[in-house]
Nucleic acid binder design. Structure first.
Lengths: 331, 331
DNA sequence: CTGTTAGCGCTTTCAC
DNA sequence: GTGAAAGCGCTAACAG
């Protein structure tokens, strides 16, 4: 293998044609003699020609890079999402530029800037940015954006499910099963004030929809409250939340735990032995194949990743996918 | 925000200087009047100038992209590794281009080609390629490569621990605790023939070292064998391996499960209740904070990611990091 | 200290 | 069908 990389120019010389012809062959455009084309392709293969993407991007103005901004890789969701994004991007000839925001709004903006400086074809973002104007002005400036996981306020294309409706349906299912006490387990809610936790807020709204309460009312009644025959409790702080789950499980009333994320679902599983119900949300990875089968919402991560890429590249307006409520054995 | 991106040329016009001066200011090189520099930087900020990395790379010949090839994102290790690589790369002003090989040698090579076509500064790879000549010729051709997770045969720089020594120490510790039966749980070994499962093979060698057996001998004795007072068994196939774990746990002899990956460790945890011992390998994520504390090797993923980036950028020869044997409560 | 200029490798007209 | 040439935006070397 030679040390310097071979270029179109070299190839032109080698084949005794002009670089224009090389280009026609390499990018199989029309208007070229099949024989010369074959000759060129053979030479390219023989000499190990690899096209310089930077030059291509610079010259053509469009790159084959898709930027992906996610919070981190600590949960199943971002990993799974990234996997399907990468697969679809690859399939369509694009590469994936990943950056982690670590839930920092500033970092997220830095990522966007860096991505723009590389002329990415577009950006798929699980955003924490709360200022809706930011992405709107980017879009206005010609940068393509698609939001996943967390919806961005304003009219940024979003690919995902209707989290609110899903949680509402999920909760209504639990109510229909005759539980007398519902415990909503969402410690992450404590961050709602300072961060865009979009999907989690939506889910909580769905829960409130189902039990016929507004958030305002909830605030005035405190964390524990009741409505009709049913008692409710919301675990909305990280502080010793596992202990609180265990405590709730001791109630004499038929209790079900409603988890808006399987991160919490796993913490509730031990309560099954006390006869409690548990319903989850996400159903990614191993948790989807538990025995007994877990009840809850299956999040279509695979589809979301794929469709986000398609939406980005084909210029769609985003879309709301159907969710699936699994009637398992744990509720 | 204007629609067209502003360039050095525009900036030069705006500031009434030449593009050479703009360059000196933007890349803060010497030989420029502090005042003009400030004026230029102000203008750049004001007009939202973002440098075109493709042009920079094309012109300078060096990019700020680091390619990372991993099998997939389904386990804790690649996710954690990617996290630390991304952090260090970011810190040093580099971005991370991730591609998944899905354990396919062909895909891995495609990834390498695509990365080379983008002029990445270098590639960090968890490789499955078995042909050592491949990467060697790449290196010879000027591409920087650092292997992590799986060592690549030949003298490709590798950053990681000495897996063999670690497993040997781990096994010796178990032996010293007086167990009468050791079950090595490594179904992945069934892939050894067709794939570079490097680290896993090393670990198995370490296990054999500890019990004073060679692989050849093992082969001739079959999966079950004994040496001195101690009995050994190797679970080296995926086929109903969880059931086999459960069966092994029923033995009247004091049994310990040796897991060369925590993927298997979690499957063995239920046997603790029968008085069995379990020792793990990796200790990533939640498993590191289990109660009772898990015995086993802690894999320094954080350091590996960071050092792999440094090694790649600073041209080191790779390095073997110290491992840590945690004397937990499960053995 | 600052300006000029020649590329980097590829795409894309526009002639022939 | 093919060739020639003008950029894309930036860097770097060389004058002034």
């Amino acid at each position: 293998m030679s040390s310097r990389k071979i270029t179109v120019k070299d190839l032109a010389q080698l084949c005794g044609v002009s670089i224009g012809t090389i280009d026609r062959a390499i990018n199989n455009r029309g208007g070229i003699n099949p024989e010369t084309k074959q000759k060129i392709l053979d030479a390219a293969a023989k000499y190990g020609y690899v096209k310089n993407q930077n030059a291509r991007t610079l010259s053509s103005g469009s790159s084959n890079l898709i930027g992906v901004i996610i919070f981190n890789l600590k949960n199943e969701f971002p990993s799974a999402l990234l996997t399907s994004i990468e697969a679809e991007a690859s399939r369509r000839g694009y590469s994936t530029l990943i950056m982690l925001s670590n839930y920092s709004e500033k970092t997220e903006r830095d990522c966007v800037t860096r991505m723009r400086s590389m002329n990415v074809a577009g950006i798929i973002a699980m955003s924490v940015v709360t200022d809706s104007g930011y992405y709107e002005s980017l879009i206005h400036g010609g940068t393509r954006i698609v939001a996943v996981g967390n919806r961005i306020v304003g009219d940024i294309p979003y690919v995902g499910i209707d989290d609110r409706a899903a949680m509402r349906a999920s909760t209504e299912y639990v109510l229909a099963r005759g539980y007398e006490r519902l415990v909503y387990v969402a410690p992450l809610l404590e961050k709602a004030a300072t961060q865009n936790i979009g999907a989690q807020s939506e889910r909580f709204s769905g829960f409130l929809d189902a039990i016929g309460l507004t958030e305002a009312k909830l605030d005035s009644t405190g964390a524990g409250f009741s409505s009709g025959q049913v008692e409710y409790e919301v675990i909305d702080r990280y502080d010793s939340y596992e202990w609180r789950i265990a405590e709730c499980a001791k109630s004499p009333r038929r209790t079900a735990f409603i988890c808006p994320s399987d991160t919490y679902t796993v913490k509730c599983l031990p309560t099954l032995e006390r006869g409690c119900g548990v319903i989850g949300f996400d159903r990614l990875g191993i948790i989807g194949s538990l025995i007994p089968e877990l009840s809850g919402i299956a999040y279509p991560t695979e589809d979301i990743g794929r469709l986000a890429v398609d939406c980005l590249l084909d210029g769609g307006q985003g879309q709301i996918l159907p969710y699936e409520l699994i009637f398992g054995k744990t509720v």
